[in-house]
Amino acid sequence: MLRQRRAATPLVSMELLARQPVVVGIFLIFMATALMVAVFFLGSFYFQQHLGYNPILTGLLFLPVAIATMAGANAAGRLVAKLGLRALGATGLLVGAAGLALAGLLLSPVAAVIGVAIAAAGTGVLFVVASATALGSVAPEEAGVASGVVSTFHEFGASAGAAVMSSVAAVSLTGGTTSGFTAALVVAAGAAVVAAVITTIITPRTTT
């Protein structure tokens, strides 16, 4: 960051990174990816290690997650003009929180599939809102850099999500108890609620 400030022709403009819509987009893509990784990471361990399901069955159980993600993204595209990015971003996070809480508090194969599918619908919304928020406020010549920054924080979110969830769920990842899975999913749900509040506060009113 210091190097970019001093460079004659910086790769990434610090002014671009400081723009509020770009910051909101970065935050949302970070949270969306962290929550999505939480779903796949914890779900894979729960289905395969704890329940003993084979990889094929586990993959089939995650099929609703893929469908729900696409459905959420499609719905976001249709609702963005009506609700606005602020409300839609907060809604996506709250839907994700509801799904994660359902999966964690009522932990069972059925609850896990339904809960993570609901959460995936919320993250599908977030992917659309994050991109629209970050890229909708930049000039055409800045779009490539802004998109690259958003993609970078997509990877950061995945790393952070896996690190935090593995730490919270450690007791279940190494043993036969489900308490770690429940704790991790509830923590993820709580983080999504907090993120929804932050999103409501930091998203510009003029962003549509």
Rank of each mutant, 00 (worst) to 15 (best):
S151M: 12
L42V: 09
I26T: 12
M31E: 06
G157L: 03
A184F: 03
A132L: 11
P204T: 07
A117E: 06
V125N: 00
V129Q: 01
Q49P: 01
S159M: 11
A188N: 05
E15N: 15
S172D: 07
V145T: 14
G157I: 03
G84W: 13
R5D: 04
V149I: 15
R6A: 15
V116M: 14
L85C: 10
V22Q: 02
P109D: 09
Q4R: 15
Q4W: 05
G92W: 03
E155H: 05
P204M: 14
G96A: 09
A111C: 12
G180V: 04
G96C: 01
Q48M: 15
N74K: 15
A97E: 12
T207H: 13
P64S: 08
R19C: 02
F62W: 01
T203E: 10
G144I: 15
L185T: 03
P140S: 14
A163L: 15
N54V: 07
G190M: 08
M36P: 01
F40C: 08
A130I: 05
T174D: 10
A111T: 10
A121S: 15
R86W: 09
S131R: 00
A146E: 10
N54F: 09
A134S: 14
A75E: 01
A196L: 02
F45I: 05
A8R: 13
I26L: 04
A192W: 09
S179P: 00
A87D: 10
V80Y: 07
T9G: 05
A146K: 14
A71W: 07
A130H: 14
A68R: 02
H154C: 02
A130Y: 08
V193P: 04
P10R: 02
V39A: 09
V193A: 03
V24I: 02
V80K: 05
A32N: 12
Q20V: 13
